[in-house]
Nucleic acid binder design. Structure first.
Lengths: 211, 211
DNA sequence: TAAAAAATACATTTTATCAGGTATTGCCGT
DNA sequence: ACGGCAATACCTGATAAAATGTATTTTTTA
């Protein structure tokens, strides 16, 4: 008898579970032992059962996939975990991998991509589906690597700016001189080469640099 | 021989297509005749082939589901179209139905919900999965009903504002008077009771009212 | 088709922001 | 212990935006 990889699928969309299950049933060294719609149920299960491979959605209710991956890997580092989602953001994927994830597949990947990724992940590789690769490889030079990031104070001020506060109001809120706030504003605008606060706020929000 | 409903699935995620196909195969008066990953391919197909039922993802590349639904319904009002997505926004669902959609199902719906909705839709009803129902019924009083929404011109101007354009630049871009743009700006700020452009942009982005 | 909403345009006053340069203090890491 | 960065503060001129008031035309929709 051949030992099959005991595999668990976690996704809050029943149809997706069914789709993946169908796909995996074609792989003969994979055995689907359970399917869950939440991370909590999964955590319970792996306490008492052997699991070799987990395919998990990143956007899950209650616990998100990134944290779930971390939790599992701390206790069971040998379990191979592959993340999935519909859209990918570079930072999310990187975080997932940093938390011990063994791979990341976009749900728009082809069946062949899925199969190949799963096989390679079992083999010990860190795998990504094609579109994920392009997303994580390209913007190294320009987008995320380049942008410096706000200092603490700058973030405070940017946040208040996004709430419609004027320079004077921000100064009052933070117990600073009007002029100090003015300087911070200027520095932030200069740092990101933004023409005005409107463009700045749009930029910061789109890059999740506030909050 | 029983006439089966000729059914088409449109989704850019192969796994989801596979999942739905699996589900539908259990329904004996449904026959899946085609699967597409884009709306363009679907439009080509229905030109030359009879289709009774379409299950389509709302977030599709190139053409989004809402527009796709409208286009199809204009030419083929008899085709039953059910929309699907992972998360639902009230306004999106409403728009879809207004464009002739016969129902809307969240992808986290159970298999039974899927089946029931499909049957009822074929029967001529407008159907929603459970979670969609709660979303479209509850927030009538507070959230989405309250905020008025930008007019076309206002959106144009807000978008350019978010790109850091000045009033004069916007006027030049849109071939308007400087004064007209100024009036629009004023109206937008007044409409949402925003103190300045920074707060406005933050508000609009957080509520997905740009793009 | 009449009323309502949206888009257009103008004028003026007040206030806020942008951009330039400059400088002191404190903290963190090597 | 020093260099570098962050945070603080000041000055000023040019420019942009906000606040207010009014009015015409076009488009939508009830």
């Amino acid at each position: 008898m051949i030992m099959k990889y005991k595999t668990v699928i976690v996704d809050d969309h029943p149809i997706v579970i069914s789709g993946i299950a169908g796909l995996l049933s074609e792989l003969d060294n994979i055995e689907i032992v359970e399917k869950f719609e939440s991370g909590i149920a999964l955590l319970d299960y792996i306490e008492d059962n052997k699991v070799d491979l987990i395919l998990m959605d990143i956007f899950l209710p209650v616990i998100n996939g990134v944290d779930l991956c971390k939790t599992i890997k701390q206790k069971y580092p040998k379990i191979v975990i592959i993340g999935m989602s519909s859209q990918s953001e570079r930072s999310l994927v990187m975080q997932f991998i940093q938390n011990g994830g063994n791979g990341y597949i976009l749900k728009n990947a082809s069946f062949d991509e899925f199969k190949e990724c799963i096989y390679k992940a079992i083999d010990g590789e860190i795998v990504f589906s094609e579109e994920v690769k392009t997303i994580i490889s390209q913007p190294l030079s320009e987008d995320l690597e380049k942008i410096p990031g706000l200092s603490r104070r700058e973030r405070d001020i940017a946040l208040l700016l996004s709430q419609g506060k004027s320079t004077q109001e921000i100064a009052d809120d933070l117990f600073l001189s009007f002029l100090t706030v003015q300087t911070h504003r200027r520095n932030i605008l200069q740092k990101y080469k933004m023409k005005n606060v409107a463009e700045l706020i749009a930029f910061l929000l789109k890059n999740n640099m506030l909050n």
